[in-house]
Amino acid sequence: MSDRMRIVGFCCSHGAYSSADLAGVMRISYSPSVMIIRVPCAGRIDVLHILRAFRDGADAVFVAGCLEGNCHFEYGNFEARKMVEHAKRLLSDIGIEAERVEMFNVASNQAWRFPEIVGEMVSRVDKLGLSPLKKVIK
């Protein structure tokens, strides 16, 4: 399953993206299933981005912003959390498990945190199976 698994991670360039970068520098490995999309702030993410990721074949989506209180734009990470909650509600209405989307907070110096998040999402997909859309999307 893992070679077909696709996890989309919307990463804030200040925290999560740097954390992923640092993990690379420190040679901490994480699943190659993750596709990182760098965003200027997690608060940039809208429900629509999350839905579109699923329609494009993602099995899970996560949004990673800075630690609460550390957002470079004051409250972008809080906005992101609300968006993720909204997406969870919408996904379950649609018929997709809400656990396939999650919000995380990461600081740029937490090299271990990014691989941990990827691991968490991989294990969720392992448990839930590939996206139910995979069967129908050509």
Binding site: L48, F54, L90, G95, V136
Partner: peptide, 19 residues
Amino acid sequence: EKEVGILAESLRLYSDLNN
């Protein structure tokens, strides 16, 4: 405009999921 996009995308997902 935004809600149109979200609803349309939700309907597409629902449609895909339920053939």
